[in-house]
Design a protein around this nucleic acid. Structure first.
Lengths: 233, 233
DNA sequence: ATTACTACTCACCGAGTAA
DNA sequence: TTTACTCGGTGAGTAGTAA
């Protein structure tokens, strides 16, 4: 649902943690001198020492200093850290689809028809359950123009999505809908909807979100909108 | 056989590569502006630009610049980079044993008996085949003294090893032997042998190597020897 | 809008060294 | 031997700006 990502600041620490794990600290308590670690990571003894202090401070390793070197074990937090990195790489490499794609287009005003659909309880309940938010009654319409974005939009049809089931009420039938969690303008959570009806072609994107995006992100007609779409592998 | 490891020097490039992959560049060509990338990695637009230039220079990405941003795909080299990181983490996390342990002790002169065994063709052929080197006819004897190292040495008995089969010649029988690839003093390749005979207890390590280690590493009796032992998961 | 150059600053790394 | 402090130099990150 939210963007998976790894913090720049902690990446280096993750690599040091990995090197310690590689030396056995993932499963055992290892004895290692700062000098030895320094050679392994191609840095100075002083820097190796500093890294160990930092890793202990953030709680990724447990360290006790002896006359022959440091005794080091990964903490549960440290192990989780490596495990998460592993799982993210696994998803990235073994998934059949990209984890996310970005789309870009220009905001425009539609007929306000989206609101009618969103308000339907048959849809709304499923949005809350499957997307995790109660959508603002209205859609942000975005028209994609560039060839790249049109192509990307079409590829999306093949990627796995969250399925919203169709339903009937007393007066009519509502069809099933696919949607993808999205991050709009790198800030606001929402979802891309494919597609309530047929009178827009596939160059139009309809976005729902928990808040009124035009206010939240100060979007006006004609402005560029960028979004990151997350697939569901 | 050789030490698995992740290059520390390129850790930053690896992170950027990972973030690009996360945005879809592992499977598709993505369009991304340096500004957008900058926000994703929490750096300035200028720095993002510099990173892309660097990544292209070292051949991890293919880049073409358009008026709307850069079109980026990972090259095979780039994909391999991430795949290697993934596979190493996988081995580390899913293995039942540590990938390596370190042992430390003091060199001493034995009775020269090791040479007798190593010279036996029945062993020698297997060393060449299974360890990948023709051993120098002699062993480096190392006595472990600290409690930590003695304990580590004993744990080693439970870890999977390269098995050298026993054999018979016209005059006598030679028993089977376990051995582990090793890196001695962080420099020289070799192997730890467990164990040709019984008159040394488990506090003595016998090391073979393609070259005469005492010359190669300038080891004299009484000097400390450090080695990294690789298990075979 | 883009990308990316030049200049400058500041944080990181390592030498020296204490404990 | 260890670990880890201080401190100075340098390379990494950014602001300004050109194209």
């Amino acid at each position: 649902m939210t963007a998976p990502s790894i913090d720049m600041i902690s990446w280096k620490q993750q690599l040091i943690l990995y090197r310690l794990a590689e030396m056995g600290a993932y499963r055992r308590t290892i004895k290692v001198s700062t000098q030895f670690l320094a050679e392994k990571i191609s840095f100075s003894q002083q820097t190796a020492s500093r890294y160990l202090i930092e890793l202990e401070k953030i709680g990724w390793i447990k360290r006790s200093i002896t006359a022959e070197g440091c005794l080091i074990t990964l903490t549960d937090t440290g192990k989780t850290q490596l495990k998460n990195l592993y799982l993210k790489l696994k998803a990235l490499i073994e998934a059949a689809y990209p984890l996310s794609v970005t789309l870009e287009g220009v905001a425009f005003s539609g007929l306000g028809e989206g609101a009618y659909y969103i308000k339907q309880d048959g849809y709304r309940k499923q949005f809350i359950e499957k997307l995790g938010f109660d959508p603002y009654p209205g859609t942000l319409n975005v028209r994609v123009t560039s060839d790249y974005d049109k192509k990307t939009r079409q590829e999306l049809d093949n990627y796995p999505a969250i399925e919203i089931e169709g339903f009937k009420n007393e007066s009519r039938t509502f069809g099933p809908v696919k949607c993808y969690p999205a991050l709009i303008n790198n800030k606001a959570r929402g979802a891309l909807i494919l597609a309530f009806r047929t009178h827009y072609d596939s160059s139009v994107l309809e976005i729902i979100a928990p808040h009124y995006l035009r206010n939240q992100l100060k979007i006006r007609d004609g402005q560029k909108v960028k979004m990151e779409i997350f697939t569901m592998p």
